[in-house]
Design a protein around this nucleic acid. Structure first.
Lengths: 329, 329
DNA sequence: TTGAAAGCGCTAACAC
DNA sequence: GTGTTAGCGCTTTCAA
């Protein structure tokens, strides 16, 4: 049932019906009685407007594209939930996609979403996605980057204080008396990973300590990544503490630690919390990103763009907090 | 840049351009040379069709609505990822929403998705959503239910063998010699939860054993649900084993077990695996649903509906597997 | 081989 | 106060 059929049935024009439906009856000085007649009929037949047609006419789809690395992941999943909830308050729905770190796929996804006329985009960039992002930014489509910043592109960004938080974590390990601190991270140029690494290197250097870095290859994340870590640990028997640059590496690390040749105990701390970190033995100390705050900031920034006349670029760095549990004591 | 501007620039008609773009040039016997001229120009200006307009004209949006309880959860998150990946193979994108178990919200979400003309719906039903689902089914919009079945509605469904798998799990505990087996579940009428409960009750009855059920209230899931379990455990000191009806209850249960008054050891097993269950001590035995298979089946069923002339209802029960780790030995 | 024209369902400027 | 009309960008039938 469409607006013109309603109009025909009621012997009024399409625009009258449209105005009533959109609550502009008063404003357009349509008589109360006619308004009611329209409303009643709409109610009666359970008319629902076709949002697609509306979007085509208005140029607004009330849909936001959310592109993350992996929606099933313990960082992006929860953040997607919060983003969705906040966006709902502004009556936006979410079209989502996971890139699995594949930048070719990411570019494709971005294009499809643009084709579908999303009103805005929220993106956790993959490596080598600069060109596409630049195009979006230049085309004035509202976009908010999060988790990973893209250097050299002037876009909205929400992230955390990777460097400072990492420094605090390393200092905490030092305060506990550990002196042979190793770091497990992935081989990536992503700025947030570089920040975490630099914080480690710099802090150790300030204490004249020697760094030991295990660079795992991202591709092995799922399968037997933990073996890579175990081998590295077996080669570095003098280490007494570890810093993991992200929670899934820590998850693999825990597995590696449980499978060491000799029963050494190492202290450790990781970036990013995980539902399970308070359940394992020992409970895992971590640097916790405030997911809900991050989501809130992202949505706020996007909605600002969406409603603003002129474009303004913002950056919001939301500090993470050290969550000390037993693994680092 | 739109199709008519291209047509104007090239001095051809809109339809010619449209036909070329959609690869129907041959079929419509448009000359190779004209075809090439159009293609070249499109390439040159980087023309991208407006998917919204296309959808309005064709009645197909190539978008599927996915409605789950919580996208950030360790069951729905990963399954959403698989669903998305399989749907991509058929060139569908996903509009998602989390209901958080709120049926009013769920109804709203369903309506918004329908308004946006999704081609099909994948739904993990909340309680009391029967009416809405019935409406969808009656309206012939392709829909696939999963995880929870709705009794009395003839809709496509993909799930697992809750009853049989649960029985196997309980029998496993019995074989290990446990005789005082309690069950922790949520207070819900959802069929899959009822099946899991019935399997427990029946199996115990067959062995003339007395059941002990801890019915937690779902609303407390997030906060201090584990305290509810601990109190129940403190009151039931004779229990020597536990069966959890779902993984997040088990997560809470682990926390409860770690905080018992006296250091009792209970064996336990749970429905649904979790990334962390092999990392905690003891590693957790579970009934594992084959998530990828489930996702694949859902998508296959949906795509079948989408392309079928006549509608056919299917049901696919994918068996879960017992994954024995140490917690139940 | 190609183009004109109607239509998908809705909005909004403007005329009556 | 209410209706007319011209789009939004694309598809598709039918005529030329």
């Amino acid at each position: 049932m469409s607006i013109s059929e309603i109009a025909k049935h009621l012997n009024v024009s399409k625009s009258t019906v449209s105005l009533v439906i959109n609550g502009k009856a008063e404003k357009s000085r349509i008589s109360k009685v006619l308004t009611k007649r329209v409303l009643d009929y709409i109610e009666e037949i359970g008319y629902k407007p076709n949002a697609l047609a509306k979007s085509l006419a208005t140029g607004k789809s009330r849909t936001i594209g959310l592109i993350v690395e992996n929606i099933g992941d313990s960082f992006f999943g929860p953040i997607a939930l919060y983003i969705e909830e906040y966006l709902r308050k502004y009556e936006y729905q979410v079209l989502y996609s996971s890139t699995m770190g594949n930048n070719k796929l990411a570019a494709e996804i971005i294009q499809t979403m643009i084709d579908k006329q999303v009103d805005g985009l929220i993106l956790a960039p993959t490596d080598h996605i600069e060109k596409e992002v630049k195009r979006i930014v230049d085309s004035n489509t509202p976009i908010v980057l999060f988790d990973r910043k893209i250097l050299g592109i002037d876009a909205n960004y929400v992230g955390t204080n990777n460097y400072e938080a990492s420094t605090t974590a390393i200092q905490h390990l030092l305060e506990q008396g550990y002196r042979n601190i190793g770091m497990v991270t992935i081989n990536s140029q992503q700025p947030q990973m570089q920040d975490r690494l630099q914080a480690y290197l710099t802090t150790l250097d300030q204490h004249s300590l020697k760094p030991h870095v295990c660079l795992t290859s991202f591709s092995e994340k799922k399968e037997h990544g933990w073996k890579e870590i175990r081998e590295w640990l077996d080669k570095n028997t003098h280490l007494d503490a570890l810093y993991f640059s992200t929670n899934y590496l820590c998850v693999m690390g825990i597995k590696a630690l449980q499978n060491l040749q000799n029963e050494r105990q190492l202290a450790f701390i990781t970036f990013d919390d995980h539902e399970i970190f308070e359940l394992v033995q020992p409970p895992v100390s971590c640097i916790r990103q405030p997911l809900e705050k991050i989501a809130k900031s992202i949505v706020h920034m996007l909605v600002t763009q969406l409603t603003a006349k002129e474009k303004c670029i913002a950056e919001d760095i939301i500090p993470s907090e050290l969550q000390i549990r037993k693994s680092s004591l």
